[in-house]
Design a protein around this nucleic acid. Sequence first.
DNA 1: ACAATTCCGAAAATATAATTTCAAACACGC
DNA 2: GCGTGTTTGAAATTATATTTTCGGAATTGT
Lengths: 291, 291
Amino acid sequence: MPDIEFETVSQRIRALFESLTRAERQLANRMLENYPVSSMGSITTVAEEAGVSAPTVARMARKLGFSGFPDLQAALRRELEAAISDPITKHDHWASDADTTHILYRFTESVLDNLRNSLKQIDIEAFDRTVSLLSDRRHALHIVGGRITRSLADYFFTHMQVIRPDVTLVASNSNSWPHYLLNMQEGDVLVVFDIRRYEHNIVRLAEVAQSRGVSVVLITDQWGSPASKHSTVTFNLRIEVPSAWDSSVVPMTLVESLIAAVQADCWEETKARMKTLEDLFDHTKLFRKFL
Amino acid sequence: MPDIEFETVSQRIRALFESLTRAERQLANRMLENYPVSSMGSITTVAEEAGVSAPTVARMARKLGFSGFPDLQAALRRELEAAISDPITKHDHWASDADTTHILYRFTESVLDNLRNSLKQIDIEAFDRTVSLLSDRRHALHIVGGRITRSLADYFFTHMQVIRPDVTLVASNSNSWPHYLLNMQEGDVLVVFDIRRYEHNIVRLAEVAQSRGVSVVLITDQWGSPASKHSTVTFNLRIEVPSAWDSSVVPMTLVESLIAAVQADCWEETKARMKTLEDLFDHTKLFRKFL
DNA sequence: ACAATTCCGAAAATATAATTTCAAACACGC
DNA sequence: GCGTGTTTGAAATTATATTTTCGGAATTGT
C-alpha cells in the first residue's frame, strides 16, 4: 500500500520519471499510453507489451511505492473504479482534472481540430503529385519561407537534404533572390511557404519562378496566399489558434508527411545517404550516440 | 475465446441470466454493478466480493463461453480498452475510407495519438512554472537546439523576440558556446531542445548553465535526454511516427502553447512591441501588408 | 416427506504469476 | 581505451491464482 494516498499512479510515474532507467522508462511510457488498461493484465503480459522483462515490471512497482505488482494493480483498479463511476467521466479524458479552461488544453484542442479539418480536406491526388515532384532527382529542389515560416522551410530543408541531392534553401533575405532564380532550371521544383500576413516578395518570387518553367508547390493557410495564382499545387491548411499568432503545427505535419512519403519513395538512396551521414558524424565526432 | 465475437460480456450475462443458478445470479449482479472493473481482480477477490466461492466464478466464465476466468478477464480488458479509447479517438473518418492505408492518413493518425498522449501527461504545474520563467523580464532568456531541433529553437526565438526583450538564440555550432555561457547570468533561463540521438554537447551545455545558476527548461522526447539531470523543468513528448525520422509536431505544439501563454501574461508589453514592430516594417518596407 | 437431482464450496491439485538470484551487458567516469 | 558500478533479463524459486474433485446442502418433483 502506498504511503501517499491521494496520488494517482500516473502522477507518481511522472514524478519519478527522471529517476527511472531506460527499460523502466520504456515501461512507464507504455503504461501511460492507454492508461490504465494497459497495466491490467498479468505481469508477464504487461512486460511483453512494453518490451521489457517481468522483473523490470516488478521492480518498477516497488519504485512507485507499492509492495509489489499486485499491489500496484489494486491501486489502478481503485482509480479506474473511481474514474468510471464518477459522473464527470464525459470529461475528454486527457484533461486530467478540471482544467478545460487552461490555455494548454484549449490550445491543444484547437490544434487537434485544425489537424482533423485540414487533413480531411487535402486532396490525396495533390499530395501524391507533390511527392512525385519532390522525389524526382532529375530536377533540383528549392525551398523558401517567409518571416515566420522560415523555420518550417529550414526544417523541411534539413530533412530533404539528407534524402536527396540538389536541395537548396533560399535565404529569406530577398536581396539575394535573383541569384537563386538564376540557378533554377526549367522543371525544377520550388516549395513556397506563405501563410497570412502574406509576403509580397514571396508572391513575386513564385510568379517569376513559374514563368521560368519551375513547378511551384505552395503551402498556405485556409484563406490562401495570392501566390496560389502562380502555383502548380496548393495546400490550404488551418492555422487559427487561441493566440496572437497563427499555428504552424498543421503545416509542419504536412511537411513531415511529405518527408515520410518521399523518403519511402527514395528509400534505397536515402538509406545509403543516411549511412554516409552517420559515418561523417562519427568521424567528425560532432555528436555521440546515446541509448 | 468466445464463439460469438461481437457480443460484450455484459450482454452475454444478461442473455443467460435466466438460466443461471442462485449463486451465479448473485455473482452476475455483482459483475454488472460497476462493470467491468468489479471483475478485474483475482478470481478469489471477485468471488469474495460477490459472496460466492471461487469455483462458482470459474464455472460462470465457462457458461459465458470462455475457456476460463483469465479468458473472460482478457475479454473484459479488451472491451474496456475499446470503450476508453474510443470517445477520445473519434476516428472521425476524416479519410475517405479506402485511404486509411495512405501514408498521409497513417502519419496524421500517429500525430494525433502523440498529441493526445503527450499533452495528457504534461504536468500543468510544470507548464505554468515554465510560463512564469519565460515571462520574467528581469532575467534574460536563451534558446538552444540541436541538429534537427534547431528549426524549432529558431521558431521559438522568432516569437519570443517579439514578446519580450533579452532573448538570445544560441548558435547551434558549439564552438561559440563558451561566449554565450559567458553572457548567461544567474537567474537567467535556458530553453534546451534535445530529442533523440541526444547531442552530447547540448547535455554539457545544460550542465554548465545550471551549475552557473541558470534555470534550464528541457524539451525532450518520451525517453528523456540525459540533459534532464541538469534541468529545472522537463517536458517529455511523444515523437514516434511511421517515418525514418522523428516528429517535431508535438514539441512545436508545446512551443506554441508556451508562446500563447507567455504572450497572454505579458500582453500590455507585447502589444506595444508588436505595434512598434509593425511600424518598423512599414518604415523599412521590408515587406508590404496584404489583406 | 423422501428420493433424485442439481448446486455449491472446502480442500487438494495444478497451473500460472510474481519474485529473487545472478551473471552478462551496459553506461560512465577516469 | 579500462575498470567500476549499475542495469537488465534468463532461470530458479516462491507465492498465488485457477481449476478440479468430491461430499454435503439445497432444491425439485412426486
